[in-house]
Nucleic acid binder design. Structure first.
Lengths: 382, 382
DNA sequence: GCACGATGATTACACAATGTAAACATTATC
DNA sequence: GATAATGTTTACATTGTGTAATCATCGTGC
């Protein structure tokens, strides 16, 4: 119910009432509760119209949450408040072949450093979130970090001790951040697939009616689209990722994979250097479209938002995705039935997504004391 | 809440209380309501243990629902009660190339005949359900019947007039019937994918926490697994269906597609006739496994139930599916992580699945009068 | 500078759904 | 036929919500 506050980053009461489908009376009661617990604040504002509302409701800056993001390059730790302010950041480089023990050592170290900072400031963490690429349900093996995910989860929870912590897939956090954080400028508002093409190729089905923490990753990267095709790090052949990941295209454009996304606009200029470079990349986009069409056949959606290197490509090249869709999507690509949008990859924003996700989890738990929460979780398991 | 009654086909109160996570007090109150409306009945039974419950709660036989199933071969209409009894059945042969106008004519005729029967018996229909292969969300084109699905839905609703009617995908109805109807003998109890390989290849993710009427079809059939592969009726090439549908294998075993599933046990005997027949079918099962693995990468599940011709194959041949999974499923096939089961295709059971689905929809609406229901539906749309 | 109108915010009250706990009912066994 | 064990119902308290009345706030216009 106060999820919408997090989404909008502050709203007037009538708007809240509409969003939550509650009466203003209920809003009033709930807000007075939340004010007591210092979770929301009211700022006086001149009314936007005659007789209009006077107080803008925002989430409190007194609640501190932590976000930790693991990527191919680094482990980022951040502490901030519910409004998105980042008060503490710590980034440590990590290797792509990070082992589980090494990860645990680094992670514990980072968390301890962060806790010390928090203690010095007298800040109490209300929630933490950890975003890991490829993290998935159950003990399903992670193609990126071949770890025992149950052990990772247990380890993370122990490391945080009393602080409630949520572990999620990096792409889920990223999608939630893009879609629901108040940065605006997100291309679609309805249910859609958010697809990120980076070191892996993963997406999330962003369903407006489902709470963000129920989202689960949509691992498109390891769909086999070419029998006996290129070898993939997962051990199979012909996966989407083997053709379209940063590593796969880095050999085409001759730029180390970790630098590609940083190039931003200069990316396009690089393309025309090599003779068949653009053509080769178009072929890769075609394959991405083919896999995407397959995925959409399984799970029909009318909108897809793509982030990652394909969103840096010139629009005429992005059309190669459409060609791929035309070979797999039932009924072919039809602009009336499917909207394709692109959003620039967010570089150096880590660990904002995890932080946002932590804020979301905190807000969703309703700001109750951790004890109650754990109990609910236990009941769900039982 | 009384969904569980439909699932179990009758239960004692303590069991209901556990299933619905309500107190026995609440159960008591709710049951007294439902008894007033003649939706449930209580039958005296000897207590199963000392001090045990004495009255078995069952759904009333006074509520009549209708189910209509369209398949490649025929249109089946049935009327029955909530306990699964089928009081009226009417089956009409249809052609596989049924046009939309022709369908509407046949459908209207069947419904009128059924209504006349109901009127003669003084039966009032409380709910109807129509199951159509390939029926899907939105106006997504149906690869089996290339109709305007919005128009079909509208037509069906108009034909039934006052009777609330639900239109759904045939495989959804089938999965719900197999899984939740009290026939028992369903191989798994947890979340899983029910996959039916018939004229099409479609599945449903049977999620225990989701209401059956929110299930949506998982169209595996048109995943392209072979670029420039066999032509499929959908217009693309290399779809799973082009390799594994009844039509596809009918050319291998030399039996008309509509007869294959009827063969039952004699199916195996036919296999050894032709020299490479079994080998060819194993190749097809391999491709099914490949596509299935791709689907499970997108949507991880620990259990899959397969129905259709593959479930008639000898177990050693079914292993070809595992070979396919090993080439696409992340981490390969592992019996600890994925349970594959087979269930015999239900032939001649139509329109039991649609009837069950109708019962489900009725029960889910809580037996309220249709007016209230429509309003709720309208609100959900808005 | 002050009354007015429009809207927002709060509060009292009614109502519905549920859990708790106590009272009451049923049945097999001794 | 008393007893023990369990099932069933009822009274009461609690919670969350909507309705509607009341109070508050602000821009406008005289």
């Amino acid at each position: 119910m106060l999820e919408s506050l997090l989404r909008t980053g502050g709203a007037f009461r009538p708007i809240l009432a509409r969003e939550t489908k509650l009466t203003e009376a209920s809003i009033s009661r709930i807000l007075s509760e939340l004010r007591k617990e210092n979770i929301v604040e009211e700022v006086r504002r001149p009314a936007p119209y005659i007789g209009g509302p006077t107080a803008l409701i925002t989430l409190s800056k007194n609640v501190a949450v932590a976000g930790i993001e693991l990527s191919n390059n680094r482990l980022s730790v951040g502490v901030g408040d519910l409004t998105g302010t980042l008060d503490y950041v710590d980034r440590m480089p990590v290797s792509g072949q990070l082992g589980q023990d090494e990860f645990e050592r680094l992670f514990r170290e980072s968390v301890v450093t962060m806790q010390e900072w928090a203690d010095r400031r007298g800040t109490h963490l209300s929630q933490a979130a950890v975003a890991i690429p490829g993290y998935g349900r159950g003990a399903a093996s992670n193609p990126i970090f071949p770890w025992d995910m149950a052990r990772v989860t247990r380890f993370i929870e122990e490391t945080f001790g009393d602080v409630p912590v949520a572990v999620t897939n990096a792409v889920v956090a990223q999608a939630a951040f893009h879609r629901y954080s108040s940065t605006g400028a997100y291309p679609v508002a309805s249910d859609h697939l958010f697809l990120f093409v980076g070191h892996g190729v993963a997406g999330v089905i962003v369903d407006e009616t489902t709470p963000v923490d129920a989202f689960s990753a949509f691992e498109l990267g390891h769909m086999v689209i070419q029998r006996d095709g290129l070898a993939c790090r997962c051990g199979h052949r012909g996966c989407v990722e083997a053709y379209t990941s940063l590593r796969a295209i880095s050999t085409i454009i001759g730029v180390p994979d970790r630098d590609i996304l940083n190039k931003g606009d200069s990316f396009i200029e690089m393309l025309d250097l090599g003779g068949g470079t653009r053509e080769a990349l178009r072929e890769r986009l075609f394959l991405l479209g083919l896999g995407l069409g397959n995925a959409l056949n399984l799970h029909p959606l009318s909108s897809v938002v793509i982030s990652g290197w394909p969103s840096l490509m010139p629009p005429e090249d992005q059309l190669a995705i459409v060609d791929g869709l035309n070979e797999s999507l039932l009924g072919g690509y039809d602009a009336n039935r499917l909207v394709l949008s692109f959003i620039a990859p967010s570089i150096g924003n880590d660990p904002r997504a995890a932080l946002y996700y932590a804020a979301y989890c905190f807000v969703r738990s309703g700001g109750l004391d951790p004890r109650t929460d754990t109990q609910t979780a236990l009941e769900e398991i039982a």
